[in-house]
Structures are given as C-alpha cells and as structure tokens.
C-alpha cells in the first residue's frame, strides 16, 4: 500500500465522521419509537421532541396492553396468514415462470418472456385492477390479499437469471434418462437453487409484511380481516385508538394509552429488525442480479 498524503488523511477522518452521522440518522427514528414505547405514559403525553432514553421509569405497560387487545392480536395473526400464503403462492408461480423462461429451444419462449416482462412496463391501473378483483368476488375475503400482487415479473427475471446458470448438460442428461420436466424442476433445479429461492422468499415476505394498500381498498366491510399495517394506520394516523382499544378495560387502558402507538409500531417492526441483518446479503444478491438483467 502506498503512503497517504495529509489531505487524504484529513478526508478519511471527515469521511468517517460523516458516515457515523449518517448511521445515527438512519437509526435514530427507530430508537426514538423504541424509547417512547417503554417510557412513563404520563411523561410521554406531556413531552415533545426526541426520546434518547426512556422518560421516567421504564415500563412494559404499553406492550401488556396491546398483548391483551384482541384487535391488534388478530391483525397480527392475519398478517402472518397473508405473508405465508401469498409468499408461497407467489413463489410457486415465480419458479414455474422462471423455469419456462430459462429453458432454451421453446418455440414460444420469447413470446412468453415478453408476455411476462410487458407487465413491468405497463399496467391497467388502479380502477381496472380493482374492478377485476371485484368481479372475481374476492372483495372482503382473505384471497384479495393473497392472490392479487403475489407474483412480480421482476422476481421472475431474477430467478430466471439464476436458473439459466445451471449447466444445460445436467438437465439434458436427466431428459435422456426419461425424467419429465416437472421431475427435472423438483429434483435437479430446485435443490441447487436454495440461495435464489431464499432471495425470492425474502423479497416477497418483506413486501407482504409491509403491505397495507390492497387491504385498504379490498377490505371494505371486514375489519376482522385487517392486516397489522392497516390497524396500525388506524391507530396512529387516523387516531382511532379509542375505538380499537375500547374492548379492553381496566385502569391500564387509560394510563397507557399514549404508549399504544409506539408499542404497536415496535411489534410491527421487531420481526424485521431481528431478521434483516442476517438476510441483507440475500437482498444485496437479488438487487445485483436484478440490476444486470433489469
């Protein structure tokens, strides 16, 4: 390594400080909510600004309150159902599409690829899509949150790119041995594609965990089917926590009310916060594959 000049050393110091400051900015809002959620509720109600540490004596009262609240718990359960089913459904179709697209020598291979990719460039828009879902009778059912939006052309392309890298001789050998296409997919391609499957599962799961908009338009009368994000929206943004927590009673409710929004935000992001440091490398892989072909 060559020697660094004085100017470069000064730059290195400032660069480090700049990046550290950025880290603080990225992290601070989450920290603020975390501290708010365990603060003394009376002090939260009266305070303002940023919470760098819990105000007053730390308490888990806010969490206790939402753990007793049937609306929030049910929304949490709904989200789990939607994330798992929609991810599974999307994954299966993504694998099928990617397999067909990665197979060479199909007469309609190009047509199929175009058929899929075109959905990335153009779409029918909000109302026509809504009317199709309506026509199918999915409004106010769980299916409306599981099927529409479950398959993304972008993810298909990422998976196709990865499948194409599997040596063709391996597949041809199996075909000569008489294996059918489905068998080749399940017993040769999928076992060697665990990493890319992990990437796609994560892409879908994060997307569905954080989704709220489809629920807002497709669930019109069935509040009992709401996912967590939509309940969160009602609590924090539409300030309807009164009606949501009305079914819980006791003194706790009155006292801990100011903590509910922070605690609900926390329970919605804690799973992500725990998982993402371990899965981020898969995300990076996915973005890189996507950028090459996208």
């Amino acid at each position: 390594m060559m020697k660094r000049s004085a100017g470069e050393k000064v730059f290195a110091v400032f660069n480090t400080i700049f990046l550290l400051l950025l880290c603080v900015v990225f992290f601070l809002p989450v920290w603020h909510v975390a501290m708010g959620s365990i603060s003394d509720p009376l002090k939260v109600a009266a305070s303002s600004g940023l919470y760098l540490k819990p105000l007053g004596k730390p308490t888990l009262g806010g969490y206790r309150l939402i753990m007793q609240n049937s609306t929030i718990l049910r929304a949490y359960g709904n989200t789990l159902i939607y994330v798992v089913s929609s991810t599974l459904f999307g994954l299966v179709l993504t694998i099928l599409a990617a397999y067909v697209m990665s197979t060479r020598g199909l007469l309609f291979g190009k047509t199929f690829a175009l058929f899929v990719v075109f959905t990335m460039i153009f779409n029918g828009g909000l109302v026509p899509t809504f009317l199709v879902v309506n026509k199918l009778g999915l409004i106010d059912t769980r299916w409306a949150l599981i099927i529409p939006g479950a398959v993304s052309a972008y993810n298909i392309i990422i998976m196709r790119t990865s499948f194409s890298e599997i040596p063709g001789e391996m597949l041809d050998a199996a075909r000569i041995d008489g294996a059918d296409e489905f068998k080749i997919l399940t017993s040769i391609i999928l076992p060697v594609s665990k990493a890319i499957i992990a990437v796609i599962v994560l892409f879908y799961a994060v997307q569905h965990w954080n989704a709220w908009f489809n629920a807002a338009i497709y669930l019109q009368k069935s509040r009992n089917l709401y996912p967590l994000q939509l309940t969160l929206r009602e609590i924090v943004l539409q300030a309807t926590e009164n009606s949501i927590i009305a079914d819980a009673d006791g003194q706790d409710v009155m006292i801990f009310r100011p903590l509910i929004k922070y605690a609900t935000i926390m329970i919605s992001i804690i799973p992500m916060m725990i998982v993402y440091p371990f899965v981020q490398k898969y995300f990076v892989t996915g973005v890189m594959i996507g950028s090459v072909k996208g």
Binding site: L93, L96, A97, Y99, V100, T103, L106, F108, F112, F115, V116, T119, F122, N123, G124, G125, V127, P128, T129, L131, V132, L136, I147, P148, G149, V151, D180, E181, F182, L185
Partner: peptide
C-alpha cells in the same frame, strides 16, 4: 410439459395484469 407448467403463470398474468389492461 413445459407449456403445461407455463399455464398457471399465463392464467395469472392474464387475469390480474392483462384483463385490467383491457379494462
């Protein structure tokens, strides 16, 4: 067999992407 595997995908995109385009 390949086209059979493609069928669910075609149906999906047809219903949820192309039908709205027609709309």
């Amino acid at each position: 067999q390949m086209y059979l595997l493609a069928l669910p995908v075609i149906a999906y995109f047809f219903i949820f992407n192309y039908a709205p385009m027609f709309g």
